[in-house]
Structure formats: structure tokens, C-alpha cells
């Protein structure tokens, strides 16, 4: 690396150069006295500027600036400022109450509709007369009347 190539790199902040550039610059500075002197000047200058700015900032009362910014934020916005996704969701639902109520009632209405549908169609529940009779020795006879089943056991001659 020559001095023309090293000059732009002299003011770089720590970590700003990639390893290759840092290695080349280090090798050049090891052999180039003028560049080392220039680097020393730059560091001294940046130190002066840094210290000067820090001193100047220390003399200023920035709390006035911060208070002014905070004072310009409306109180309503500050009170409703969402802190996270849940707070934002709550704020949204507060602004859209009808939508929130509808979304909350939707599963309830769906469950009610399903319940009524099952009740109307019978679902898996029994709705028809069903008779199963087992008898070890006697014959079983089932008479289906309008009031319900009559189950008789015997030789099969009881029915009319």
C-alpha cells in the first residue's frame, strides 16, 4: 500500500476497516513515517473536537429540549399509547366495539347453531322406537302400539 492509498483510511474509526484493509494499513504505517505523523494529527484533532463537543454539550441544559418535546405530545395520545401488541389490540377493540362484540359472540352463536342443529336433526340421539329383546327360554313378542311397545314372553299366542 502506498501513501495515497493509506490516506483515506487514516481517519477510520475502530472496527470500520475490514481485516485486509486493517492489515495493509498497519503494514504501511510500520514503514511510513509521514503517514504515522498524519495519523497522529488526525487522532489529536478528533480528540480535540470530541472533547470540545462534549464540553459544549455539558454546558447546554438539554432538559429544556426534552421537556419541550414531551409537552408537545397531546395528553390523550400519551395516555393511549400502546405498550405492546396486546395493548394495541385492546386499543383497537376499544375503538371498534361493535366488531369486538361480534367477534366475541361469533363462537357462541356458532356453538348455539350447532347445538340447535343437532337437536333438530336428532344427531346421534335416539328419536325412534327401538326394541331389542333377548330371552333364553321363552319366545319374545313385541307389540308396537301408539302408546309404546309391549314386550311379551311366552309361547307366542298372547298377541291379538
Amino acid at each position: 500500500m502506498r501513501c495515497a492509498g493509506a490516506a483515506p483510511l487514516l481517519g477510520s474509526l475502530p472496527g470500520e476497516l475490514d481485516p485486509t484493509e486493517a492489515a495493509l494499513l498497519g503494514a504501511h504505517l510500520a514503514t511510513c513515517e509521514p503517514c504515522r505523523a498524519r495519523l497522529a494529527d488526525i487522532e489529536a484533532l478528533s480528540g480535540v473536537v470530541r472533547d470540545g463537543l462534549r464540553d459544549e454539550a455539558a454546558r447546554r441544559d438539554l432538559s429544556i429540549f426534552a421537556d419541550g418535546v414531551m409537552a408537545r405530545i397531546p395528553a390523550s395520545a400519551w395516555q393511549g399509547a400502546p405498550a405492546g401488541p396486546l395493548e394495541r389490540l385492546r386499543a383497537f377493540l376499544r375503538r371498534h366495539r361493535v366488531l369486538a362484540a361480534a367477534s366475541a359472540l361469533a363462537p357462541a352463536l356458532a356453538a348455539l347453531a350447532l347445538y340447535l342443529y343437532i337437536g333438530r336433526t336428532g344427531g346421534t340421539g335416539p328419536s325412534e322406537l327401538s326394541v331389542e329383546v333377548t330371552s333364553e327360554d321363552l319366545a319374545a313378542i313385541v307389540l308396537d302400539t301408539s302408546d309404546g311397545p309391549v314386550i311379551l314372553v311366552g309361547d307366542g299366542s298372547e298377541g291379538t
Binding site: P126, S127, E128, L129, S130, V131, E132, V133, T134, S135, E136, D137, L138, A140, G148, P149, I151, V153
Partner: peptide
């Protein structure tokens, strides 16, 4: 008594 067992569903 009648050795009978039934399973009946009534409306």
C-alpha cells in the same frame, strides 16, 4: 324371572 333382557328406546 323370565330370563329376558331388553333394550328399548322410547320416544
Amino acid at each position: 324371572g323370565s330370563r329376558t333382557q331388553s333394550r328399548v328406546t322410547v320416544p
